[in-house]
Structure formats: structure tokens, C-alpha cells
């Protein structure tokens, strides 16, 4: 089974990082599959907010590939992206996604407001606390502290331009983006007012995007798939032929679901009659 592992490395830390800090950085070489992306999203995925093209540098490979798949399938709609995504094979989408996932592009210089300057309290509160009456949980639950994302599934929001964020939230809201199996984003976006959307977009636009975060996501065979509930994808586990070695641990306490000693630790083996906590 181990030999069948196909590792999808996301933002692999060992890839050479572009030295953009000083002067003109060397132009990274995008793979063939990503050539079409460069014109709009930039060689490093820095995006072109002025023309409505979002930053994608350092988003996870899983996330970028999933968006391409969604554009191709129509669960995310965009007249420019749809034909491009349809023209790429799944392998090409993965290659392009892997490339951009590894890019550590400079944060946006102009266009974005100075941190905190234009971000309203409402945007910050929605991002970090949520709204009980509207049933909006805080964005940070899934999108990480300061909007750095929770890779591989949940994208970073920090430093995305406000117009893109607004458009994305509106797409969730009006149902043209439906690539969220649990509909978490659809229900949240539906609960937000246009002013809320503007405020939260402004808030995240004011933050600094994160550097790529390395994630390993490996399925036993091929890229991640979604088996139907009830299906066991592997049949490699035969019954254990060895004799029963089982002996009791503790007095029947499960080691999950909350077993604990008096102080709350997870040990179930030892009697802790006198614990002070």
C-alpha cells in the first residue's frame, strides 16, 4: 500500500523560493499547464487586482485544483475561467495548482489600503467574532488567524482584493458558486447584507497574505477521491491471523469520547484516587 502512495505536495517547502525581496527577482518558470494563467494571475500568482484577477500565490494546491475543476464543471461560473479550465486535463490542473501553491509572491503594494486604515469595525467583528442574530460564525473558524487560511481546504483571505472577495461572496449568495459540499459558505453569504460583504471584504483586503504553508495530502491510489459513505476503499486488511492477545485495559473505559482521570487526562489504565485536580 505504501508503494502506491501518490503524494500531492502542496506548497512544498523545499521548492526554491523566489527572491523577490530585493530588486528584480528572477522570473520563475511556470510549467506548461500554467502558461495560460500567467497573463492574468502573474508569473508568481500575485494577481492583477486593478483588472479583477485575484491573487492565487500560495493558495493550496488542493484549493486551486478544486476551483479549476469547479470552473470546468460549472459549479463555479466565470466566462474567462470556464473555457480555460475545460481545456486542462486533471493532471494539468494539478500541475498548475502545484506551481502556484508554491509561489511566495510579494504582498500587494498598491491598490490595497493601508492596514486597518479603511477596515471597518463591522468587517473585523464579522471576521473574528461573527454575528449571532444573523447566524454567521466568525470567518477565522475556518480561514485561520488573520485570514491566513486553513490549508488545504480553506483558502487564505488575507490580502485578497476587496472587489474579488465581494464578487466571490456574491457568487455564493446568488448560487453561481456551488462548489462547497456542506454549503457552509452559501448559508453564510446568504446571511450577510451587501454592507456586511463590503465590510468583511475590506477587512481582509487590508491584511497581509501568508507565505505558502506546506501540506501533505496523499491518498492510497491516485488523487484524493470521495468514496460514497459506506464504501471502504481498501480491502487490504485481512482478519488478523494471530491469536487473541487482548487483555483488559482499565475497567472497560473507552479510550475515546472522553475517558479521563480525575484531572481530566486521557489515561484509563491507572486508578487515580487521589489526584488533586
Amino acid at each position: 500500500m505504501r508503494t502506491a502512495l501518490v503524494v500531492i505536495a502542496i506548497g512544498i517547502g523545499t521548492l526554491p523560493r523566489p527572491a523577490h525581496a530585493q530588486g528584480q527577482p528572477a522570473q520563475p518558470q511556470a510549467p506548461a499547464a500554467a502558461q495560460q494563467c500567467v497573463a492574468c494571475h502573474g508569473a508568481r500568482g500575485e494577481g492583477n487586482p486593478a483588472n479583477g484577477f485575484p491573487r492565487i500565490a500560495g493558495q493550496s494546491q488542493y484549493y486551486i485544483a478544486k476551483q479549476l475543476e469547479s470552473y470546468a464543471a460549472g459549479s463555479r461560473q466565470n466566462p474567462i475561467m470556464a473555457p480555460i479550465a475545460k481545456g486542462l486535463s486533471p493532471e494539468e490542473r494539478d500541475a498548475a495548482a502545484a506551481y502556484y501553491a508554491a509561489q511566495d509572491a510579494a504582498p500587494p503594494k498598491s491598490g490595497a489600503p493601508a492596514p486597518q486604515a479603511q477596515a471597518s469595525d463591522r468587517g473585523r467583528i464579522l471576521a473574528t467574532t461573527g454575528d449571532n442574530n444573523r447566524r454567521v460564525p466568525a470567518c477565522i473558524n475556518c480561514h485561520g488567524p488573520g485570514g491566513i487560511g486553513e490549508p488545504p481546504v480553506y483558502p487564505y483571505l488575507a490580502g485578497l482584493d476587496a472587489a474579488y472577495m465581494t464578487a466571490a461572496l456574491n457568487a455564493w449568495r446568488n448560487g453561481t458558486r456551488r462548489n462547497d459540499g456542506g454549503q457552509q459558505m452559501a448559508t453564510i453569504a446568504n446571511a450577510l447584507t451587501p454592507d456586511d460583504i463590503a465590510a468583511v471584504a475590506q477587512h481582509y483586503a487590508s491584511l497581509t497574505p501568508p507565505k505558502p504553508i506546506p501540506v501533505t495530502l496523499a491518498q492510497k491510489s491516485g488523487p484524493a477521491t470521495k468514496p460514497a459513505p459506506g464504501n471502504v476503499p481498501s480491502s487490504s486488511h485481512a482478519a488478523d491471523p494471530r491469536p487473541d492477545k487482548s487483555v483488559g485495559v482499565g475497567q472497560g473505559a473507552a479510550t475515546t469520547g472522553g475517558t479521563q482521570g480525575p484531572g481530566g487526562s486521557g489515561e484509563s489504565k491507572t486508578d487515580r484516587s487521589g489526584n488533586a485536580r
Binding site: 475556518c142 481546504v153 457552509q184 506546506p214 495530502l217 491518498q219 492510497k220 484524493a224 471502504v232
Partner: peptide, 17 residues
């Protein structure tokens, strides 16, 4: 930071973050 809606049914996946 824990949300695994997309991953929970990718059975046996090796996940490191």
C-alpha cells in the same frame, strides 16, 4: 484550527499540515 468536511470521507488519507 480544525475543519475536515472535505477530508473525512477520504478514507485513510495521509494528511500532514
Amino acid at each position: 484550527y480544525a475543519n475536515y468536511y472535505d477530508l473525512v470521507d477520504k478514507h485513510g488519507i495521509e494528511f500532514r499540515r
